[in-house]
Simulated assay, not measured.
Amino acid sequence: MNDIELILASAVRLMLPLAFAALGEWIAERAGTLNISVEAMMLGGAFTAIMGSTLTGSPSAGLAFGVATGLLVAFIHATFSHRLTVNTYVVGLTLNVLVLGLTSYLFTRTPGAQVDKLTIPVLSDLPIVGPALFDQRWPAYLLVLLIPAGWWLVHRSRWGLEARAAGENPQSADVTGIDVNKRRRQALLICGALAGLGGAYLSVAEVGSFNTNMTAGRGYIVIAAVIFGGWTLRGTLAGCALFGAADAMRLALPALGYALNPQLLIATPYLLALLAMTFFAKRNRGPGALGQPFVRGIT
């Protein structure tokens, strides 16, 4: 592969974990929950995926462990935020710190394992885009099903209509008989499963091992991608592609012989995330009740 193909392939690989988690975060935010704990879901999913693959001897089974961990974090967050009405931002930040501490404490180096690659004949031979899009680890192709399924769930199903109503105007939704907090909990669980899968993909597909704090703030970049995309699915995925490309350039430019400040390269994806949240959050209107707790009878 030439330099352009290498950079594009790297960008796609780095985008994929973000895309899984961002799909879930988009669903959660459309239901009214700004899920700060997506970082904990991804990091916990990455850790248990490696541990699960070691215990079972199957990297593919490790993906299921990652999904289960994401669901567990989501269940805890949903219980505290939407049953006990604890401040959702406090709950999310606490879970992020807790999972970081637990994974660092429990971390032991284990033999790396990766899921198999799935190379699509003919398409993988296309110039420039072929290796990047059609020569990936097999879980990457799950996005082909998950993205349209997520769009349909939010925009075409009755559940999605009720979830969007819970995120836009929970008081009106409650009057029509919608259980607002139940829909928010369900959206958060979907986010947990997808973010856990994203973290698991990072460890058992992209890297093949676990390192302390290996998500390195990717959960926060996911939140920025949703804001960057104006709370639309295609915009969210475009944000993931942008941040993935920035991360790929950070890794590729020194290898190609370009002498740039390494600290600046490391900071580039996070600077883009900050700029996205600064400019696009004001330009695009999010769900009307995003991040606002709902208590029946209180407006």
Score class of each variant (00 low, 15 high):
12 V>N: 06
279 F>K: 05
179 D>F: 05
189 L>D: 00
71 L>H: 08
114 Q>T: 14
287 P>I: 05
21 A>F: 02
70 G>Q: 10
159 W>G: 01
117 K>Y: 12
288 G>E: 01
10 S>I: 03
13 R>E: 15
65 F>D: 10
152 W>M: 12
80 F>H: 13
154 V>H: 09
137 R>M: 12
278 T>I: 15
7 I>V: 15
88 T>L: 14
296 R>M: 06
271 L>N: 07
4 I>V: 13
109 R>W: 00
117 K>S: 13
43 L>M: 10
127 P>H: 04
219 G>Y: 08
57 G>K: 08
194 L>N: 01
289 A>N: 01
42 M>Y: 09
236 T>W: 01
233 L>Q: 06
286 G>A: 10
111 P>H: 04
163 A>W: 10
44 G>L: 12
293 P>S: 04
40 A>M: 06
180 V>P: 01
58 S>G: 01
82 H>Q: 04
296 R>S: 09
242 L>S: 00
268 T>S: 15
12 V>I: 15
266 I>H: 14
173 A>R: 05
45 G>V: 01
79 T>P: 03
89 Y>G: 15
79 T>V: 13
49 A>L: 00
139 P>E: 09
284 N>H: 15
290 L>P: 09
76 I>Y: 03
191 C>D: 03
52 G>D: 09
30 R>P: 02
63 L>T: 12
35 N>V: 12
101 G>A: 08
119 T>N: 10
238 A>L: 15
257 G>F: 05
72 L>C: 13
36 I>T: 09
258 Y>V: 13
252 A>G: 12
214 M>R: 02
135 D>N: 15
103 T>D: 14
255 A>F: 11
255 A>L: 15
209 S>N: 12
166 A>K: 03
295 V>M: 07
43 L>Q: 12
174 D>G: 02
203 S>W: 09
275 L>D: 07
74 A>N: 03
118 L>W: 04
123 L>F: 00
28 A>M: 01
166 A>C: 02
266 I>V: 15
70 G>D: 11
140 A>Q: 11
29 E>K: 08
58 S>N: 13
111 P>Y: 03
167 G>P: 00
209 S>Q: 11
126 L>R: 02
294 F>A: 04
156 R>M: 07
226 V>I: 03
76 I>P: 03
102 L>T: 05
3 D>E: 12
242 L>P: 02
51 M>W: 13
39 E>W: 08
19 A>M: 14
213 N>T: 10
198 G>K: 07
174 D>P: 00
34 L>H: 11
207 V>P: 08
216 A>N: 10
261 N>W: 05
158 R>S: 14
19 A>H: 01
212 T>W: 00
259 A>Y: 09
22 A>D: 10
239 G>N: 05
288 G>Q: 12
246 A>N: 11
262 P>I: 12
109 R>P: 03
160 G>W: 09
20 F>V: 11
50 I>R: 05
23 L>V: 13
105 Y>R: 12
162 E>P: 04
253 L>A: 11
228 F>P: 08
7 I>G: 01
91 V>D: 07
174 D>W: 09
246 A>G: 14
